[in-house]
């Protein structure tokens, strides 16, 4: 590939990720660039196995063109991990702190003016931030933890494509940022069957009670139609919670897979993650109903075979 072509495609990926992240794969695969470009333009989904969180993330991002594709100089970046629970990292109830810390560091190195991390936690937010190890990892890397415990931090948005959820209040930092990353952990979940990328969006929402009262799965699919989608869904499967999710009872609920799955496509990320998960705890993907419902709303595709998937063993 020529240097100039590379820059062109890089810019395109960058733009696409900001404005139409859901459609990133299709944009690249079809019309905008020639066929030879599509082959070269980078994968729709990257899966890495066998490394430490930081190394796997750096490796995967390299496949996607590096962090610079997504984060430009001066950008305000938001990272939304799962920090829902007052649990230590070994219990896999929250996203791996090393993964989050590394992502913060990469964003800063790409010139981000500020990297904000938050979650609307289920347990006491201060304890969750601290005991998950994420607060320390983020502040050490130069990021900023902001609270999500009060309604005043949220602002109302419309979801015109939503079926049950037509509007909801989401965290202002997401609304105001230049780019954001969704960084869930792969978990079993008592209510939603599994918690991955789309389920993690419940942490950007203020009023979650509505979800539970109005068909949880449909509402999860609805929130995934939010027009400002994350640049990437970075699914932490270094440790996964195979049972008793979403809190877990002990380390017996944890399986260490040392894996990472990244895609801008919500549905593809969740589908691929489910296939990985099913090897530990056999689960029918159709029982995780929000995945199919989101596909129906054109949020993404379950058809992994149709995508350009990059698999890496470290």
């Amino acid at each position: 590939m020529k240097r100039r072509d590379f820059f062109k495609s890089a810019a395109a990926v960058g733009l696409a990720s900001v404005f139409r992240t859901n459609a990133l794969g299709s944009t690249l695969n079809s019309t905008a660039f020639g066929n030879n470009m599509a082959v070269q333009s980078g994968p729709d989904l990257v899966a890495v196995m066998g490394g430490e969180p930081a190394a796997m993330l750096t490796r995967a991002l390299k496949e996607l063109g590096g962090i610079g594709h997504f984060v430009k100089k001066g950008y305000k970046v938001v990272i939304k991990p799962n920090i829902g629970w007052d649990r230590k990292p070994e219990l896999a109830a929250n996203t791996n702190p090393e993964l989050v810390g590394t992502l913060v560091r990469l964003c800063k190195s790409a010139g981000a003016s500020e990297v904000v991390v938050f979650d609307h936690t289920c347990h006491d937010w201060k304890k969750s931030y601290t005991n998950s190890g994420i607060e320390k990892a983020v502040t050490d890397a130069g990021g900023k933890m902001v609270p999500g415990n009060d309604e005043t931090y949220y602002t109302e948005i419309e979801l015109p494509r939503g079926v049950n959820l037509k509007k909801t209040k989401i965290h202002k930092s997401i609304v105001e940022c230049d780019v954001w990353f969704n960084v869930p952990v792969l978990k079993h979940h008592g209510g939603a069957k599994n918690s991955i990328a789309m389920k993690n969006l419940m942490g950007i929402v203020w009023e979650r009670g509505f979800f539970h009262g109005h068909d949880l799965h449909q509402c999860i699919a609805d929130i995934a139609t939010y027009h400002k989608a994350p640049a990437l869904n970075i699914v932490d499967a270094y440790r996964i919670m195979k049972s008793n999710g979403p809190q877990g009872k002990s380390e017996s609920d944890v399986a260490t897979l040392k894996s990472l799955i990244i895609s801008p496509d919500f549905v593809a990320a969740d589908t691929a993650s489910m296939k990985l998960f099913s090897q530990v705890q056999p689960t029918e993907i159709k029982d995780v109903r929000y995945i199919a419902l989101a596909e129906k709303l054109k949020v993404g595709t379950q058809n992994i075979e149709s995508l350009n998937v990059k698999r890496i063993k470290m």
């Binding site: 008592g190 539970h212 009262g213 949880l216």
Partner: peptide
């Protein structure tokens, strides 16, 4: 509809 918030 599915819920399970309590068990969660």
């Amino acid at each position: 509809t599915d819920c399970g918030a309590c068990s969660e």
